[in-house]
Design a protein around this nucleic acid. Structure first.
Lengths: 219, 219
DNA sequence: ATTATCTATAGATCTATAGATAATGC
DNA sequence: ATTATCTATAGATCTATAGATAATGC
């Protein structure tokens, strides 16, 4: 019943390492996140993922059917928490939409930059167009729709044409997802500051501002 | 001396195709651009590039030392025209900085979206961190510096702190390079409209606006 | 008995080189 | 003679499966 070493079911691993506390599945996901973002998805072999997680190549197939499976799972895990927050914010219609949009932006930047690794960069992979990623695309589309709804609920947003609203939603969503480009450029910078700055920028793109903060204007 | 077929030096190609008019080198670059952006860099084999350019795999090595060589050349070709324009705009200090920054943004969006292919997406490749891409990074850094200078020369930009200027430069540069994310999401939209909208958004992030156009503000 | 892992490997690549060949140029 | 291409291939992978093994659980 203790958590002493060597108490797990199954043949022991060949390469012994201190117990990470994670499940083998999670060890694989973490290793994959690290390697996919650092070396690239296609450039990462199943062997690299498995060994990096402390097991032999073939063992990986006990948990995932292949590399695509790992990637799909990682992508979904990046978007799902954002969507949960977005839904909560949409429901909370007591607060000004400006504030809620700002918070969603800030939170997303944090998630993208801090996450296990910069998974955001994986959105751009051509491989992600494939059918296996349908579910990811679904979740992501719903998240984007939430951005659109919040944007439309702002004072500035409500004055825009339907087309213009769609365009600005794309711009804001693109800015936030593109944070990876920015973060990679200057990785030293504090994420919290960046997140707030990006959320501010998003509102400026909409033409709105947080309650309390005046619209920027020159004297 | 005519441009009739079968008049070229060297052994004829195995797979005959209508003369593209391009040099074999350019045919390879074009094929690589297409495949790298559609299928991904690492997922593209040297065979795929060569055959797609109308020649056999081994022939590619007559022109490039490998895949990296192709990628480096493609990346540089995307940034160089932007830098040329940026230099010209920096020198042209008769016009308001706001207008020049706007033009640079708009032109870059056009280049990134229209180019031979969406090469912008390749910026994110982890492979591009390598030493072989030093020159590309140099040119790109110079382009970013130009963005910074133009931004600082705007009225709104000049009022910002040094740190805040650097941050907003990152945001604007990130927004523009991230246009790929936006463009991929809705490829149907006209590039010219998108380019103008992105340039507008960039100025809004800075807190500036084009001469003539007032700063957006609510009644 | 069940489970998590291992070792071994077939089959399918992919890269990069060696050397041959079929054009034009002189 | 020079050039652009070809064919052939060695050597190095990499993926995914088959089947063995070493733990715990009952």
């Amino acid at each position: 019943m203790g958590t002493t070493t060597g108490r797990r079911v199954g043949r022991p691993r060949a390469m012994q390492r201190p117990d990470s506390g994670m499940s083998a599945r999670d060890e694989l996901l973490l290793a994959a996140a690290e390697l996919f973002t650092t070396r690239g998805y296609a450039a990462t072999t199943t062997r690299a993922v498995a060994e990096s997680a402390g097991m032999r190549q073939a063992t990986m197939y006990h948990y995932f059917t292949g590399k695509e499976d790992l990637l799909a799972e990682l992508l979904e895990s990046t978007v799902t928490p954002s969507l949960t927050l977005a839904r909560a914010l949409l429901a909370d219609d007591g607060r000004p939409a400006e504030d809620r949009l700002w918070e969603l932006c800030r939170s997303d930047v944090g998630l993208l930059c801090r996450g296990p690794h910069n998974l955001g960069a994986l959105y751009l992979l051509p491989e992600v167009q494939g059918e296996r990623f349908q579910r990811f695309h679904g979740v992501r589309a719903e998240l984007k729709a939430a951005y659109g709804q919040l944007l439309s609920a702002t004072t500035a947003g409500s004055e825009l044409s339907r087309l213009e609203r769609a365009l600005r939603t794309d711009l804001v969503f693109g800015l936030i997802e593109g944070v990876i480009l920015i973060h990679r450029g200057t990785p030293g910078r504090a994420v919290s500051g960046l997140a707030a700055a990006m959320a501010d920028a998003a509102l400026r793109i909409v033409g709105a501002s947080r309650s309390g903060e005046p619209v920027i204007s020159r004297p």
